[in-house]
Design a protein around this nucleic acid. Structure first.
Lengths: 124, 124
DNA sequence: ATTAATTGATTACGCGTGTAATCTTAACTT
DNA sequence: AAGTTAAGATTACACGCGTAATCAATTAAT
């Protein structure tokens, strides 16, 4: 699995918002939330390319970046390893922890029910 | 929040198995699964103390280590920040990702249903 | 009482990460 | 055509982490 740092993931996330994307576009997208220097973001883009998370095509003197992996795929892998490390690979204890500490809203519960529902239909 | 590295967490996890615990006990507990050198584990214990995750009392020339935080508390915080980073703070998409990729067993589903059930009773 | 052993403390060291600054070169400007 | 930008490449640097080895001191053994 490609291992990304927190900062690298945030940059990749900005690319996932719409791609191909130039560095300037990524920088613009991130400028709302983060106080990152332009140079910092470019460094992170380079590291993402080096790690095989982004590919690019030259377009004049700019690069057009495209993710090499889907967000769902990446987050699934991360979720798996997270749940493995903290909950022995089982997902219910995580949800249960949220429930116990009142982190769940009715909306969350409804969504979870739907997920379960869909899963059961799938099994049928 | 106390920030622990992966290795630090694994050592703390071994302390949670039963405490107070001496370094030797922790080393023994970890020896089954990990190939860590004794010195490495002691370094990690020290770092956990420095970070405020473990406290200790001298007992002869050994230390008796005790966690300063509960496992549930720590994993909940970690879960929150994980879900925040990857799923905008919502838990259903995580579960949904597992479902879609066939990572869920009937057992998991049953557990999740129970969590939901308990939550709803709580609300009543 | 010395010596040996064991425990925690201190030091080590290369790699990844966050955070940029500087360098180089290709593309606009005039 | 020459100068000026601006984009990416390269370099920088301190700190955390994984992974121990060495140092110091106190207890246990003889």
């Amino acid at each position: 699995m490609i291992e990304l740092s927190k900062a690298e993931f945030e940059v990749l996330d900005a690319v996932w918002l719409g791609y191909p994307a130039t560095a300037s576009e990524v920088i613009a997208r991130l400028s709302d939330n983060k106080e990152w220097h332009e140079k910092t973001i470019k460094t992170l883009l380079s590291r993402l390319v080096k790690k095989g998370a982004l590919s690019f095509e030259k377009q004049g003197r700019q690069y057009n970046y495209t993710p090499c992996i889907a967000r769902e795929e990446y987050t699934l892998k991360e979720s798996q390893s997270f749940i493995e490390r903290f909950f022995n690979g089982r997902i219910a204890p995580l949800v249960s922890g949220f429930a116990k500490s009142e982190q769940l809203s009715q909306h969350d519960i409804d969504e979870l029910k739907k997920v379960i529902d869909d899963w059961e239909k799938q099994q049928k």
